[in-house]
Computed example of a mutant assay.
Amino acid sequence: MKILNVVGARPNFMKVAPLHRAFLAQPDIQSKIIHTGQHYDRQLSDIFIRQLDLPQPDYFLNALPGSPAQQMVDIRQKFDAVLCIEQPDWVLVVGDVTSTLACARVAAQRGVWVAHVEAGLRSGDCRMPEEFNRIETDRIADVLFVTEQAGLDNLRNEGIAPEKVFFVGNVLIDSLVRYRQKAAELNTLAWLGVCPQQYVLLTMHRPTNVDTETGLEKLLQLVQAIAQHKPVLFPIHPRTRASLTQFDLMGRLSSTPGVRLLEPQGYLEFLNLMEHAAIVITDSGGVQEETTYLNVPCLTFRNSTERPVTVDLGTNHLVADLDPETALKKILDVLEGRAKTGRIPPLWDGQTASRIAQIMTSLDVKRQSIQPVLT
């Protein structure tokens, strides 16, 4: 059985790495990695590949920069050529980026079976391109692997056949469990001159938060307020940096006392910083899950989350519309010892990839019981 695993953006590496290892541990599975290059930074991609003990991708599609619609066309054309060469049994896609949907569509049109990891997640916010990608990929997929109960509920409500759906846990946590100790050995905190629980870690990259001057002004106000209480470490996403430069706000941010601007971090460095932060402030989906597992307080600047278990069971709080006053109140509650205590969600145990590999092996034997979905 040949499986092509699709990587489109850096967070996909953390999800595909444990899957690729689990597939290779099965004697009857041939596993290959396809990097579309949707979000590509050579230095950071190389860091993630090296730190996650991955081989170089078998194919790099070098997707052209552009709008999601333009990238969709380019990725589909290039991935179609790969399918013609490889003739795989399965295409496995993770998450909700443009590459996820693009490659799922091509595979379905070619009659190749599609597995979607992180299926069923819904934010309810149709303005997010990721929400469309999630819904459409789940409609295409032959097998859907789910991380939390809300995913099962969503797929059932959308009429997805229950025999196609498997509750397996979270592959992102597989990587965290495997590399937590290795991240600790880097001693990133000492290198940056900070102490555990004595700093705030900030990430921000979603268009609704960073693409307008109004959103960035709110972010700047909040950062300046937090820095009066704790140092702020801020690895700046390329999109955020470009917007700060465009609106001439980088100087104000960099000159704020107590604020440390960092380049985007490698996986291990960021994991180490996240584990020892007093609180993490973010708009990232994956960070919500990682902080929940680590029992680190998290404040997410989103109106909704596609990962409600991080709020219901975990350490995550939502703050709508990047409101500095509301956010600061919640942050001070945490810094003053009034953070909520979370629990690790079911099956977030570091064994998800092995469960997926076992299921896919068994399904390959019983393929006649599930009909491929063509679009």
Rank of each mutant, 00 (worst) to 15 (best):
T188I: 10
L92F: 13
L186M: 07
I140S: 08
V146W: 06
W90Y: 15
Q149V: 13
D153V: 10
T147K: 07
S123P: 07
I140M: 06
V168T: 15
R110D: 01
D138A: 11
V168C: 13
N187P: 02
T188A: 11
L101W: 10
R156Q: 14
A184F: 06
L176P: 06
A115S: 14
F166K: 12
R105V: 09
A108E: 03
L176S: 05
Q181T: 13
R178I: 01
V93L: 12
Q181W: 07
I160P: 00
A183P: 04
A102C: 10
R105Y: 08
L189Y: 03
V94W: 00
N170V: 02
A141F: 06
F145V: 10
N154F: 09
D125F: 08
V94M: 03
G124V: 12
R134M: 05
L186K: 12
W90P: 04
L101C: 08
R134T: 02
A115Q: 05
G124F: 02
V146E: 07
E185H: 13
D138K: 13
I135V: 15
D138L: 10
W90F: 15
K164W: 01
R156F: 10
G95Y: 09
W113C: 11
A115D: 07
V117S: 08
R178Q: 14
V97E: 10
V146G: 04
E163D: 15
K164T: 14
E148I: 06
F167D: 09
M128F: 14
V194A: 02
E136T: 09
L155E: 02
N133A: 13
T98W: 05
A107M: 11
I160N: 01
W113Q: 14
E185R: 15
K182S: 12
G159V: 04
L152P: 05
E185G: 01
A150R: 03
A150E: 13
L172H: 00
T147E: 08
A119G: 15
R110A: 15
S99Y: 10
R156N: 11
G159F: 01
L176R: 03
S123H: 06
G193L: 03
S175H: 07
L155M: 11
F145Y: 13
Q181M: 04
Y179E: 04
T98K: 05
F167P: 03
W90V: 08
T137I: 07
T137R: 08
C103D: 02
C103H: 07
V114T: 05
V106Y: 00
A150L: 06
L186V: 06
S123W: 05
D96N: 14
W191N: 07
V106Q: 07
P162Q: 14
S123D: 04
L144D: 09
I173L: 13
T147P: 12
A183I: 08
W113K: 15
W90H: 11
